[in-house]
Design a protein around this nucleic acid. Structure first.
Lengths: 346, 346
DNA sequence: CTGAAAGCGCTAACAT
DNA sequence: ATGTTAGCGCTTTCAG
């Protein structure tokens, strides 16, 4: 439990080995100023021989910089987050930053500790997705301690926290518009728990409002966690209605894919009997049959933009919201409501 | 570009504020030895007031420990890796470790640099999945520099590198056995590029060998990268055969899901016309219709075990291979070969 | 029970 | 062009 850190050559070892001062070695390692050609060669050889690897910890302590960002996501098992982390890393690496990643699996407790650790490690900023952007203890503390951070996917409404997000309400409305365009009047929303995700709630609102504004009955709402059993029960419940919905909007693609699988396994057809729209735009949606119609977020790009915004922040930038465009992605999971349905209604 | 690190209270500030020495503060922060009750209270208050957060960098420099592991995976977009990273983090956190994660997107170049950065940051060990365990420049360097690491998913054959993996050959054979049991004789394998994945190759071998050992014709092999277009072409090619295969084994679930989608969209049925088996056991396989029959790896647990093994290593442990059991996961994507097929052959 | 002091590996003035 | 030196924030003997 003691000397886990591998014993490695220090800058002093190199200096001694090469017969120069540590300052010279430092200069060479960091490509600074001019160093005599001969000396440079000589020292470079010593570095090779001793397998010298500059100890970033020493440097960090001296310079008070770590070049590390922290990332906090609910889970990596949802590809939408995995993708965004990929984008973040791409951009961060370009800027010379590494990333400390943590997921909270939708448990607020873990989050606390993980962020604590990150802050103790002096990450220079954080990128995170929280349950509720306007009402987050974590963000409160970050604000209080003046830690630069940017939210990803969250779109704060009442607070003016820095964020990169799509307009979830508009996205939900877009889904509704599509259903209505195809003649659907009886709809349902299967959404992730509102208490776990402000996005889920916003998407529902946008969807619901559109139906209302068209004079159509409001959608039936079911909140679910991400277990399949849960979704199954929700579907069963919906189908037991005397006049079941012909269109289901899901707050995430994972739920939508699950819904399609369940409906199909029940001997019904998507979109033949029921049309489905998801939200996120994960790759899997395009792999399955029928392919998923969805409101697609540019996750990878959002990750990259978040890094840029975070770096701006650190430099004192003031931009607070970067709204990203979502894209309606037409798949095969939506179709015109059956004529017979229309007749029955008439 | 200069003072990105937030100015925070140091241990000295706390000491001054509380009117004690920094040694005392340190003791309290680390819960060491006995400290007078009054002093402790007083100092604790100062810590609160000044929002003191111990600077781990200083500690790391002093103690030569970082409590950080590095993780290198090909991609996070494949849930099998996302899941394993989840397992790693769970276990690592329990042991008081954080993790620096990097993905190489199957590009060897990025990997080099990322690992370099990790080593400079003095990670205490690495957990990685490489293209070819027995033939990896990265592992060579790690060996050379005596950096503790454990491979995950890779199962070294010729080298005795430390690894946590399932028996991919046996897994492939298990898939073949299932097909044969159901009367299939003409098979195909759609596998990830062997040059990208030694697992892919091993799974193919196991599958292929089983067929041969049963006196059946060897499977048709197609290597693909992870683009859908690629898989589509592979399927088209297979179906154009005069006597196309009735069973397809895919080296990963992602490929399998893609294959099922494509076959279905072609108007054929899985498993009605063609049976499919995947490998990995990702959640999505159970979400789709038909649910995927697959050789499932305990990814999350493997991640946890990898952490344990890595810690053993660091302590001087010698264990080199932890073989994990795969689980045959029966879905709905496999069925008995059609009688008519059998007749045609007869 | 508490304080003084050395030093982890490195960078960046400041000398020369 | 190169060397000297003072810390960065912390832990940890060693004294008292």
């Amino acid at each position: 439990m003691d000397e886990a850190l591998i014993k490695r050559a220090t800058i002093k070892n190199v200096a001694d080995h090469a017969g120069v001062s540590i300052a010279t070695v430092s200069r060479i390692v960091n490509g600074h100023s001019t160093v005599g050609e001969k000396v440079r060669e000589h020292v470079t050889k010593s570095i090779k021989v001793l397998k010298f690897r500059p100890n970033v910890i020493g440097r960090n302590l001296k310079t008070s910089r770590t070049h590390v960002f922290g990332i906090v996501v609910p889970t990596l098992s949802n590809p939408v987050f995995a993708e965004m982390v990929g984008g973040i890393q791409e951009e961060a690496r370009l800027a010379g930053y590494s990333t400390l990643v943590t997921m909270n699996e939708y448990q607020e407790g873990e989050e606390e500790m993980a962020v604590e650790t990150m802050l103790n490690n002096r990450v220079e900023g954080l990128i995170l997705t929280v349950a509720d952007a306007d009402n987050s203890l974590l963000c409160d503390r970050l604000d209080d301690e003046d830690i630069p951070y940017v939210l990803l996917y969250n779109k704060p409404e009442t607070s003016k926290r820095c964020a990169v997000a799509v307009d979830n309400v508009a996205g939900g409305a877009r889904a509704a518009e599509e259903f209505v365009k195809f003649g659907h009047t009886r709809s349902a929303v299967i959404a992730g728990r509102f208490s776990d995700s402000d996005r889920s709630q916003a998407r529902y609102e946008g969807f619901s409002n559109y139906f209302k504004s068209e004079g159509l009955p409001p959608p039936l709402l079911t909140e679910v966690d991400f277990s399949k059993a849960n979704v199954k029960a929700a579907i069963a419940e919906l189908l037991s209605h005397p006049n079941p919905p012909t269109a289901i909007f899901c707050s995430t693609d994972i739920i939508a894919i699950s819904v399609i699988g369940i409906i199909t396994s029940l001997g019904l057809s998507v979109p033949g009997d029921i049309s489905v729209i998801g939200f996120d735009g994960i790759d899997f949606g395009q792999l399955i049959q029928p392919s998923l119609t969805t409101i697609s977020q540019p996750s990878r790009r959002m990750g990259r933009v978040a890094v840029q915004l975070l770096m701006d922040r650190i430099e004192g930038g003031e931009e607070t919201l970067r709204l990203m465009p979502f894209r309606f992605c037409a798949g095969e999971s939506v179709t015109r409501v059956k004529q017979i349905e229309v007749e029955i209604l008439a």
